[in-house]
Design a protein around this nucleic acid. Structure first.
Length: 195
DNA sequence: CATATGATGGACT
DNA sequence: GTCCATCATATGG
């Protein structure tokens, strides 16, 4: 990781979940593990709220697995669906549930390592989906609860290079409830956006 | 304990 | 496009 890369502060995350989801586009997710460094630019996200959001894990109250959504912003929220780990970042202030699902990255560093972890050489297939990117970045449930605003964390999100892009939006993918609200956000035209 | 259900991915027609 | 392997949770008996 080059110097001067600023880890996003708590204040970045402690605001409206959709704002956080949009603001995360273009930021860099960095994993510094034993195998080496991998990182990628966030190009697709989805916002999930609490009660009143039928598609959200938090819509029916706290459980052991989702209670982190009520905690402070800027923490890793990782859980398994269909055998795949999904990586979210908590949003909103403590006491207000919210999380942003990171659905796709554009690989930047550690591409060989990602290829090895994913079992494919095809760059477009490395991180173009929520389950794909966790495998490429070696994100597991062990990272659940990690503070992403601590620069010493194994997993952090840092400021990216300034870049102009258009934000596209659509209904959220893979949910059956609430196909009305456009809470999925992506960099329009980026080839690593899923589907 | 049994079974249903996904914020999915990969293989296949 | 369709089908299904996958596995942690949630829920019901």
């Amino acid at each position: 990781m080059s110097k001067g890369m600023k880890v996003l502060p708590r204040s970045f995350y402690e605001r409206d979940t959709s704002e956080v989801a949009r603001a995360l586009l273009g930021k860099i997710l960095v994993h510094r593990g034993h195998g080496g460094i991998t990182n990628g630019k966030i190009v697709e996200t989805e916002a999930y709220y609490g009660e009143g959001d039928p598609a959200s894990r938090a819509s029916r109250g706290k459980t052991k697995m989702n209670e982190i959504m009520w905690g402070p912003g800027g923490r890793a929220f990782v859980y398994v669906v269909h055998g795949n780990c999904l990586f979210n970042v908590t949003a909103e202030r403590e006491g207000v549930p919210g999380a942003v699902l990171v659905r796709a990255l554009e690989p930047l560093e550690g591409i060989e390592l990602m290829q090895k972890r994913r079992g494919t050489k095809l760059e477009k297939e490395l991180t173009s989906g929520p389950g794909k990117l966790t495998k490429a970045m070696a994100i597991t449930r062990a990272h659940h609860g990690l503070d992403l605003t601590n620069s010493h964390s194994e997993l952090v999100i840092v400021e990216g290079e300034p870049q102009d892009f258009v934000i596209g939006s659509s209904h959220r993918i893979g949910v059956s409830a609430d196909l009305e609200r456009k809470l999925r956000f992506y960099m329009d035209g980026n080839p690593f956006v899923s589907r």
